[in-house]
Design a protein around this nucleic acid. Structure first.
Length: 720
DNA sequence: GCAATAACATTTTTT
DNA sequence: ATGTTATTGC
């Protein structure tokens, strides 16, 4: 079969226009990955490029992996191509060229929590109150600076707040560099710096990458933009793919202007629009289009499909979050009975905080699920501890890792001692490990021997790392350090789980040893960039993930849960119109993930952050004409309840379908004992006819006398 | 130096 | 609700 078969005319154009700059505007589900993979295959097939001359940048590890797989289905040589994320590509370059920047080539990569830890330390030392300026905000300020390629040296704070940031940024940067480490932003920043400082190196890469492709171009930030443009200057064969309606990473410095201005950057760019959607039914697409219509400043697209109309998306408004999730569970069970697999279902949420309540219900219902969230596994304490051991073995300059494990398991080297040692390290401009080795005798009185033992342990392990694979080294590490012992002698359930997690880590190292040859540095590198969505999917379970991590994916049945104001749009995004538009794009992304069925659910009240919240239904639902959505909510609450908490907006949403009259045929009698959902039990004291309806007065035990409309009150007869 | 306890703040999204 | 930090008493 020819590579150009089975492509529509626009896709084909995207594949065949290999020379010069190309801007591919690709709507959701329009087959852009198909274009990219076929384009790569075409380049190889027509011998326009050798595999290693191809650089294809994706946004997530998962996307990179998928692209590699799909390319290797089409042509040979995919393993020699540079198909990876920005960060992974940069790491690959930096490992090779680190010495030009003053790093050792086995530098560590600090993740978010490492970064926060260093920032906290710096703030403490600089006497900056982290209650006024949170480490988080400092971290994001530093991130922003780096994304704008503003170095610590060049950073000039103009007001008091920025001056504080400046101080911390400078100290932070010194520390991280001294530890022979880089944070995520450094990976891009330092690569750009490398190219600026060494034109010869840049030229080498410019020559190498004959064809460059960037996926999700709308989510690139300034430093990434610059990096791509540096590299593309050689052959100018750059193809960027994106969709301005799916830009959802503004918060981490993405600049939509990058895609909007591509034609300015490359006046001879060929622009190709992919507007035909192959993924979703017409019913789903219509809803998506209606929502995104409300955004301004779009490049404008007309997404269409020849797919069948399909079923109307369903809305369900639960009384509380339990009700909401139970509806989801019910639907899953029903659909399952019709022959769907559990893996066909995905529950999308705005924030990870919602996973808990979903888990609770699915667990009770015995519905297997899989959560794709955060950097969970590698963020667990025991995993971080053990990884810190491996890290200090690989990179003795990594003070952060050493501090982490210096007293884990407890070996009598307490806070005070560590502080003293760290101060000396600072003073003598040595690494902590060097101080431990060379100066500890003079500083520490009681823990001397313990420190010697620790140094010996680390040095021994370092030597072993020369000839052991990662699995065996890990085994030696947990045994000799006493870490395994510590957990084994602890009989709590918690310790048991920790041990299990460490066993799980062994599975990871074994897998790595088998496929990658067992080099420690490489292992650490790989896992410092590994995260969330990299977990392999299980066939037999429902997926739960955030809307962000669902980007680029598709599922037969999608539930978007927690469709409420303050949750979605998120409360922190409601003020700023820009952020609100981003929320709307996020919603668009969510809706367009669904191939066959879409459910949107919300709850009238939910327990969140230790509080009970009552939120209106999301404005995004109101932006969709009622006739496009089927409201399956069962209205159990009285009209009083519906309207009193919600105001006019909510009333509007609920009028999708008026509540069914439930109790009109019920024969109430004075003296009956009835139970009300909310007010508890009470005795009917009076009944009045009002047209078709009845007005019943009930004397409740707890709340006293109330007059309710029979048709809407959630009443059950207890006695009488 | 360490563990237990109390007080406290913090809630988004990801490489 | 949860996780982190500060304090306290041993």
């Amino acid at each position: 079969m020819d590579i150009l078969d089975n492509l529509n005319p626009e896709q084909r154009e995207g594949v065949e226009t290999t020379e010069g700059p190309v801007l591919l505007i690709a709507g959701a589900g329009s087959g852009k990955t198909r274009v990219l993979t076929h384009r790569i295959a075409h380049l190889i097939g027509t011998q326009k490029a050798k595999p290693w001359q191809i650089l294809a940048i994706t946004f997530t590890n998962k996307a990179a992996k998928e692209m590699k797989e799909r390319v290797s289905d089409l042509v040979y040589g995919s393993e020699d191509m540079w198909i990876s994320t920005f960060h992974a590509a940069c790491v690959r370059i930096l490992r090779r060229e680190a010495k030009h920047l003053g790093y050792d080539n086995n530098f560590n990569i600090y993740d978010t929590s490492d970064k926060l830890k260093v920032i906290k330390d710096c703030a403490k030392e600089l006497d900056i109150d982290t209650k006024k300026i949170t480490p988080r905000s400092i971290a994001s300020a530093i991130s922003n600076a780096k994304n704008q390629l503003l170095s610590a040296k060049d950073y000039q704070g103009s007001n008091l707040y920025e001056k504080q940031i400046e101080k911390i940024y400078k100290m932070y940067d010194r520390r991280v560099k001294a530890n022979n480490a880089m944070d995520f932003d450094d990976l891009i920043f330092e690569t750009v710096r490398l190219f600026r400082l060494n034109p010869d190196i840049l030229e080498r890469y410019q020559q190498q990458f004959k064809y460059i492709m960037v996926d999700e171009y709308q989510d690139t930030n300034h430093s990434q933009y610059l990096l791509v443009n540096f590299l593309a200057k050689g052959h100018k064969n750059i193809c960027v793919v994106g969709d301005d309606d799916q830009s959802i990473y503004l918060f981490r410095g993405a600049d939509v202007a990058n895609i909007l201005d591509f034609e300015k950057d490359y006046p001879d760019a060929k622009v190709i629009k992919l507007e035909r959607n192959y993924r979703s039914t017409q019913c789903i697409l219509s809803v998506a289009n209606e929502v995104i219509k409300h955004n301004e400043g779009r490049k404008g697209k007309n997404l269409w499909t020849e797919n069948c109309a399909g079923e109307k998306p369903v809305f369900f408004h639960g009384t509380d979050h339990i009700d909401e999730i139970q509806f989801i569970a019910d639907e899953i069970t029903k659909e399952q009975a019709k022959g769907r697999k559990l893996s066909d279902f995905t529950i999308l949420i705005r924030a990870n905080a919602l996973t808990r309540s979903i888990e609770d219900i699915l667990l009770k219902r015995d519905i297997p699920y899989q959560i794709f969230a955060g950097t969970e596994f590698f963020n667990r304490k025991e995993i971080k501890d053990v990884m810190a051991y491996l890290s200090i073995i690989s990179n003795p300059a990594d003070d952060l890792s050493l501090t982490r494990i210096i007293n884990v398991p407890r070996r009598g080297i307490g806070n005070k001692t560590v502080e003293r040692l760290a101060a000396v390290a600072d003073e003598k401009n040595k690494t902590l490990f060097e101080v431990l080795k060379e100066d500890a005798d003079g500083i520490v009185s009681r823990g001397k021997d313990k420190i010697k033992q620790l140094v010996m342990l680390i040095e021994n392990l370092q030597e072993m790392s020369q000839y052991l694979n990662v699995t065996d080294l890990l085994d030696e590490t947990v045994n000799r350090s006493g870490y395994r012992n510590m957990l084994q002698s602890d009989k709590t359930d918690e310790a048991k789980i920790r041990l299990e997690n460490i066993e799980e880590l062994f599975t990871v190292t074994k897998e790595f040893d088998n496929t990658h040859g067992g080099n420690l540095d490489e292992f650490l590198q790989q896992n410092s960039l590994a995260s969330d969505t990299d977990e392999s999917e299980r066939e037999d379970s429902v997926k739960i993930m955030t809307l962000h991590s669902a980007k680029g994916l598709e599922f037969p049945v999608v539930f978007i849960a927690g469709f409420e104001e303050r949750l979605f749009p998120h409360i922190r995004s409601m003020e700023d119109p820009k952020e609100l538009q981003e929320e709307r794009r996020l919603c668009y992304v969510g809706i367009t993930r669904a191939k066959e069925k879409l459910y949107i659910t919300a709850a009238q009240s939910r327990a969140l952050y230790g509080r009970v919240e009552r939120n209106k239904v999301s404005r995004f639902l109101e932006e969709v004409p009622k006739n496009l959505i089927e409201d399956k909510s069962i209205k159990k609450y009285s009209m009083d309840n519906l309207y009193s908490q919600s105001g006019p907006q909510r009333a509007n949403v609920n009028s999708f379908k008026m509540p069914q009259k439930q109790n009109i045929d019920m024969a109430y009698k004075v003296g009956m004992l009835v139970e009300h959902k909310k007010f508890g039990q009470g005795i009917i004291t009076e009944i009045k006819s009002l047209g078709e309806d009845q007005k019943i007065t009930i004397n409740f035990e707890k709340v006293g006398s109330k007059a309710l409309m029979a048709s809407f009150a959630p009443l059950t007869v207890v006695e009488g």
